[in-house]
């Protein structure tokens, strides 16, 4: 069997899986919303809500157990069960709170007084045109760039006051930052694992599973400098997942990744979310965000123009239409009349 066959087969399996997962997640979300309503005192059938919640949770657990090769979900049944139990009694807790975040570079205000709330277990999309401040926001969120004003709380730890604790909760995939690319993929995983405080045998065990899950196979023993762009994203994601963080912050995770691998990566991320993890990703592929994310924030020129659940933000339109509306489209082709009269 060739490598291509294997990849295609995995992708096929993944796409089936992700359909299933999507259904489950939808179910879970509705159960969650129901539970939220319940606390607000608007629902009159608490028993029903609890039952739905439990059913969703059980289905997710069963799914996770049925896929032993998939680490993030399979490894953390205890935490996710706890998280879900907590959620069924209180308002859905938040994993990231951003207040008044601001960053200026000289005269340019790259990020202007941004507030964001990301609930636990959400698949959060950050969309915006080029240069809108997505990467700057994510850098400040992950502690790579110091904000001028405002603060970021990740799982009750302030990223700038209580940095070590906050950083432990996060797995990061930055865009356009290099890796130590003279190491082989496996060595890079070891490097990150040790810096994240894992021991040797656990790193080896998890590395093997991640390498298999991401289809890195024999590439794992080649140096990362020789990887293609897509493979580099995959090994970066593996590094981010290795210490089983509560929160994944992924900057343009699907850029330069082929469609097959994208489906594969999304499958893994959904499973991670199903297991109680939270994903924040930035992208300018609106279709993908609309399809996969349950929450979204639109950033334009350093400001959050809309934020909330996907349905709230879309307001009955496609995300792309809504986005163009918010971003204020200029008819770029207007005025370029010479474009209509072709030269001979």
């Amino acid at each position: 069997m060739t490598a291509f066959d294997t990849a295609a087969e995995t992708a096929l399996a993944e796409s089936e899986l992700s359909d299933g997962d999507q259904a489950i997640r939808a179910e879970e979300v509705s159960a969650d919303d129901l539970a939220t309503d319940l606390v607000a005192g608007e629902s009159e059938t608490p028993a029903e809500a609890q039952a739905a919640q439990d059913a969703a949770a059980a289905a997710v657990e069963a799914k996770a157990a049925a896929r032993p090769g998939r680490k993030p979900a399979a490894k953390r049944p205890a935490r996710s069960r706890k998280g879900r139990a907590a959620r069924s009694t209180t308002v859905r807790e938040t994993v990231v709170e951003v207040h008044g975040l601001t960053k200026r570079f000289g005269d340019v205000t790259a990020v202007d007084n941004i507030d964001l709330i990301v609930p636990v277990g959400s698949f959060f999309g950050l969309v915006g045109p080029n240069g809108a401040g997505k990467t700057t926001t994510m850098s400040m969120l992950t502690g790579l760039l110091r904000p001028d004003e405002g603060h970021v709380i990740v799982h009750e730890h302030d990223v700038w006051e209580d940095a070590d604790a906050a950083k432990r909760e996060m797995g990061i995939l930055p865009d356009r930052l290099r890796l130590f690319d003279r190491l082989t993929g496996r060595q890079l995983l070891h490097y990150n694992g040790v810096l994240r405080g894992l021991d040797r045998s656990r790193i080896r065990e998890r590395s093997n599973e991640l390498i298999a899950a991401l289809g890195l196979g024999e590439a794992a023993d080649r140096i990362v400098a020789d990887y293609s762009a897509g493979m580099t994203k995959k090994i970066s994601l593996a590094c981010a997942l290795l210490h089983a963080p509560r929160l994944l912050v992924l900057d343009e995770p699907f850029e330069a990744v082929d469609p097959v691998s994208t489906v594969q990566l999304i499958g893994i991320l959904k499973q991670y979310v199903a297991g109680g993890g939270t994903v924040i990703l930035s992208s300018h592929t609106m279709d993908l965000v609309q399809r996969e994310c349950d929450r979204v924030a639109v950033i334009v020129e350093g400001k959050v123009l809309a934020s909330g659940t996907m349905d709230e933000v879309r307001a009955g339109k496609t995300l792309e239409q809504r986005f163009v509306e918010l971003a204020g489209s200029v008819d770029a082709a207007e005025g370029m009349s010479w474009l209509h009269s072709f030269s001979d």
């Binding site: 502690g143 790579l144 070590d164 950083k167 356009r176 930052l177 890796l179 990150n192 810096l195 994240r196």
Partner: peptide, 14 residues
């Protein structure tokens, strides 16, 4: 010499 790969040392609090 690490250039931007140094982010790992910033993100992991080594």
């Amino acid at each position: 010499h690490d250039y931007s790969a140094f982010w790992v040392h910033v993100a992991t609090s080594i």
